[in-house]
């Protein structure tokens, strides 16, 4: 319950935050909503001598939807994602997923940027962003670069972000498509036993594009190219869905924990994938 002592910083410019990160390296960490970091610090699983609160840095809570291009500042909260009409219209998948994350209080504080940058495979937004083919903007002492969500995750808590970089924005092209975020969990606020994000487009009764990603079934989120490919061109009959599910299950590597043994997780993943594909197709 009691974090180790640390220095609290609340810079009002991004350059100041990056300067503190550059000075202290791994001894400094930025904090967004604080609802993964502070709990970890309270359990002393994270010891951060320099904590940098991003709340005063301008424009990080902005949402913009221009045509199909969606941009979200890293400090956009889950509550904003749920409430924003433009976002809900452009990418309803986001709202559907955000409503399955944590609880109302946590959603007022927890941010999309924190969710995707945290690196915990149990977070829901990373798989979702891979499904949306989102791009993450990273700003560091040497400037700005973009990393695709599908290339961002390396292992549990290991991402492409360098120590002195701040993830500032998430952007993607929102295409009209059937969508579903299906999540099996033990109770409200729990991380997924298995979850899947699916986007499907329909053209003349056949699937013209498909994107399938999975949450908490490996040490990173998993985008399944093979599962997506198995659906394209089909009429989404049972055989095609079975083939896609089988391909997706081939891409995951769940581990045993309190949510169940590996065999159970493979079974649940299959059920969740099937439901997500069917629901996305019904909306396509």
């Amino acid at each position: 319950m009691i974090p180790a002592p640390f220095s609290y910083h609340r810079p009002s410019a991004l350059t100041d935050a990056i300067a503190i990160l550059s000075e202290h390296g791994d001894d400094a960490r930025v904090m967004a909503g604080g609802h993964s970091l502070i709990p970890m610090m309270k359990l002393r699983m994270a010891d951060i001598p320099h904590l940098i609160d991003l709340q005063d840095i301008p424009n990080l809570s902005d949402i913009s939807v221009e045509g199909s291009r969606v941009k979200m500042g890293a400090m956009v909260t889950q509550a904003q994602v749920i409430a924003d009409q433009g976002l809900a219209h452009a990418a309803p998948l986001l709202k559907e997923a955000a409503l399955q994350i944590a609880d109302p209080q946590v959603r007022y504080m927890g941010t999309v940027g924190g969710n995707v940058a945290n690196g915990d495979p149990a977070n829901d937004m990373p798989g979702l962003m891979q499904c949306l083919d989102a791009s993450f903007t990273l700003v560091g002492p040497n400037g700005t670069r973009a990393v695709n969500a599908r290339a961002f995750y390396e292992a549990a808590y290991m991402t492409a972000r360098e120590d002195e970089e701040v993830l500032t924005e998430i952007s993607f092209d929102a295409h009209a498509a059937g969508y579903a975020y299906e999540k099996q969990k033990r109770k409200i606020g729990d991380y997924a036993t298995a979850a899947s994000a699916v986007l499907l487009s329909k053209d003349g009764g056949r699937c013209s594009s498909a994107s399938i990603a999975m949450t908490n079934l490996s040490d990173t989120p998993i985008f399944s190219e093979a599962a997506s490919a198995a659906l394209i061109g089909t009429q989404l009959d049972d055989a095609a869905i079975k083939q896609a599910v089988s391909a997706a299950l081939g891409d995951i590597d769940p581990t045993e924990d309190n949510r169940g043994p590996v065999a159970f997780k493979m079974h649940v993943a299959g059920v969740i994938l099937t439901r997500a594909i069917q629901r996305a197709w019904s909306r396509a």
Binding site: G34, I38, P39, D53, Q105, Y108, M109
Partner: peptide
């Protein structure tokens, strides 16, 4: 749970400094 700037939040997961 308390309200901070009108939002209900969990005060155990927010720093006083925040």
């Amino acid at each position: 749970t308390v309200h901070v700037n009108g939002m209900s939040v969990k005060s155990c997961s927010i720093l006083a400094a925040e």
